[in-house]
Amino acid sequence: MKPDRNTLLLNIVLLAGVVVLSGMSLVWGETRIMVWQALGDILAGRHGAGAIIVEQLRLPRALLAIMVGGTLGLSGAVLQGYLRNPLADPGILGVSGGAALGAVSVFYTGLMQVSVMALPLGGLAGALCAVVVLMGLVGRGGTLVLLLAGAALSSFAAALTALVLNLVPSPYASFEIMHWLMGSLTDRTFTHVWICLPGVVCGMLLMLSAGRALDALTLGEDVAESLGFRLHGVCGMQTRIVLGAALSVGSCVAVSGAIGFVGLVVPHLLRPLTGYQPSRLLVPSALGGSLLLLGADMVVRVVSAGTELQLGVLTALVGAPVFFIRVIMLKRTGS
């Protein structure tokens, strides 16, 4: 059948893009280094300047771009499918904001000294609270209620984040609000990769497992349930999606800050290429998210001289126009 082959082709193209951009982001940075020599050094276990730059600075950064972008793209696609609303995005709905609040509460208060895993757990707790509040507020409320609830939740979480940053002892904390609200991958370490990984893997698997149910949901909740899917309850789809999104977004935001619009833009661009079928959109959205973030991070590294541009600024520059287009479409159709 054609759509299946198209999706496969799309996945292969996106994957190839991710591989190429990852390679480029290892080679291309602020300083010119001999990459082949650096790779040789890494393999031989020598700590030359090039080896350190590639292994300790550029590699974790590229891996995090793949993980964070994939998570945001996938959770955008899943939330849009589940809420049957193309404007659903972890950033717009305040899930990322909640995660940032949770992570900030752990990072600056010294709870992280207890265990590094406290950081993603803080992000998870914040994201989970945000999703639960959101689902409770919205119910079957429709697009307007969803967006209002998301806006309220985001600004509330941002205010609390600013408050926490003002109250904590570090004199630098209050200047770091931009990192948490806009996101950045600068100077991340392999520790960040490791603490982010379990949540990302588990969360993504949970969300991918909901693919078939998302298809069934296109015709409404009653049809989905009559087709044999459990939506509510402990093992229901809702729990899986909420937990999956909270796990992965929480872990990612804990290390990268809240990078917006990836979950909005990527599914929006890829949806026509997947026949508008939610389950087909999931893997391409994850790959597309990785691709977008890798690309954005490369631009950030090249453009910024001295003071580094926040990654979220770039994704917002790309994403906000899509948001505008969506709003205009919403006005036209009136739904």
Binding site: F107, Y108, G110, M112, Q113, V168, P169, S170, P171, Y172, A173, F175, E176, H179, D187
Partner: peptide, 11 residues
Amino acid sequence: SGQGTSLAQSM
């Protein structure tokens, strides 16, 4: 410089 934890210091 500065007590506490922050991204700036952890760098």
